[in-house]
Amino acid sequence: MSDQPIIVSASPHVHSERTSKKLMYDVVIALVPAFLVSLYVFGFSALIVTAAAVVSCLFFEYLIQRYLLKTEVTIADGSALITGILLAFNLPAGLPVWMVVIGSLVAIGVAKLSFGGLGYNIFNPALVGRVFLLVSFPVQMTLWPTAVENNASLVDAMTGATTLGLIKEGVQFGETMTAISPNLPPVQDMLLGITSGSLGEMSALALILGGVFLIARKVISWHIPVTVLATIAVMTGIFWWADPEHYANPLIHVLSGGAILGAFYMATDLVTSPVTKKGMVVFALGIGAITVVIRLFGAYPEGISFAILIMNAFVPLINRYFKPRRFGSRIKAKIM
């Protein structure tokens, strides 16, 4: 026997290898390829924005937990790190550092810790930070540096509209898709990330790679990303089929903007998504539908951030109405 007293606890006496921390760091690993692409495309400015977001998120979490809430400091659990990275991924490269810091404060202070910290927040913290910045500083937040291959000093050089911005603008001025199309980046560029947009939404390929890794590691299930993207594709596809002169084709919609980033990394946030698979599908359908409506008919060219936040609010309701089927309940229903 050991010197220490024997341990008594209730069953089970074994535990799986999974821990919250491991899940969090898997997400961080999955985000690495996308980050490398943005480094390649935007150079140093991408690093500055990401570093600023990560450091300030961790810093605010520490500060608030240590001195304001006086609770245990949990910056090592990886959740603030992910919030920082995802926030940065949703910002344009070259955004002033002080704005990034404000965004982090809103994300950590308002969206996460004021609700009770990890596990209790209703809305995705990174998206709350992003949307806060978008409505507060609309000009800076839509100043997209244009991607020029491997050009470290491009931040000062050029800015341009995103793919979706181009379409929105064009359609508003009454142009037809045939007229807009030549200005749009080709599909292979969208896949590789040679386009303009937020830091992390550049390369569809890198994001899908990370997403597949997460699904393979069972951190997320395929239900949310696949349903979101499928809904976007099907809905935009119907409009495109009905009137291809006014609506872009579904491939552009799926590959451009934050659709893939949102579908794989933001909507799947464990805390703010439903717990059952059925609920996840409903949640993802809602996100897809709202995104398409905002993109096609709203004032903003991109709407997935709003769509996810709106559906986040519905998660408790979804959890309530989409419960797993209780074992043995079907038979009872038959008797009755």
């Binding site: 341990i7 606890s9 006496h13 535990h15 999974r18 821990t19 919250s20 899940l23 949990t74 659990d77 910290g117 990890l118 596990g119 209790y120 464990l270 805390v271 998504s273 439903p274 717990v275 059952t276 698979k277 419960k323 797993p324 089927r325 209780r326 074992f327 043995g328 309940s329």
Partner: peptide
């Protein structure tokens, strides 16, 4: 022998997924 230190629920839904009785 020791149990891990409990932290807050991150609502991953894994418990719902593995429950053979369809409970939450």
């Amino acid at each position: 022998a020791s149990r891990g230190k409990p932290s807050s629920c991150i609502r991953c839904g894994e418990c719902v997924e593995v429950c053979p009785m369809g409970l939450e």
